[in-house]
Amino acid sequence: MLRSEKVDRNTLAQLVADDIEAGSFVNLGIGQPTLVSNYLTSEHDVTLHTENGMLGMGRAAEESEVDIDLINAGKVPVTETPGAAFFHQADSFAIMRGGHLDVCVLGAFQVSATGDLANWHTGAEDAIPAVGGAMDLAIGAKRVYVMMNLFTRDGDIKLVPEATYPLTGVGCVSRLYTDHGIFELSDSGTVEVLALFGLSFEELSSKSDIHFVDATSK
């Protein structure tokens, strides 16, 4: 897939939703990944998992529906769908760690060519560290998708040969969705470029030492 312009966050969320198979069990991380839920239709028949202990999570609660006992992993009040189920933390993370989820969608600071993920700590030594479920999510699902901008504000590419930020997980990212393209990652370190938006293959290659393979015409 080639597009002449970079895509916005909502379009990217739509592209992620399009790649989620019908009937999947899915966990959407906090932030940009949450947008994906706006594009999951009833035809997707996706069951959403939230790591604080629920399968079958519904949309965000309206003011009249707010229930302090019914929140998502971002502590936002949500609703339940018919067929929802609750379970405790050890069971919830067993669902994840046990490889039962089909897809997990996360945000990131950096992703390496071999699928290493950095999304929990900027490396600033004076920062108070907080990890939550990030490391469990990173290694838990059958497929781990990451959504992020391809470049930093300073123009540095965030898909890197080796992450410089503290790692969340090793070799765990399957596919990277960015405003400038979609990339399939593997242990080999060779990155398959599935789509480019507002960026040519040559421009991409010039910005990184990673070995890219052009699969945009597939």
């Binding site: 993370f93 760690r97 490391m135 838990g140």
Partner: peptide, 26 residues
């Protein structure tokens, strides 16, 4: 990590001496 926290508590309650988890490796 949250899942390790939950499992370490579960292990305590279940009489498990220690366990190997993939979470946090590396």
């Amino acid at each position: 990590p949250q899942g390790n926290l939950a499992e370490r508590l579960r292990a305590a309650g279940a009489g498990i001496g220690a366990f190997f988890t993939p979470t946090g490796y590396g």
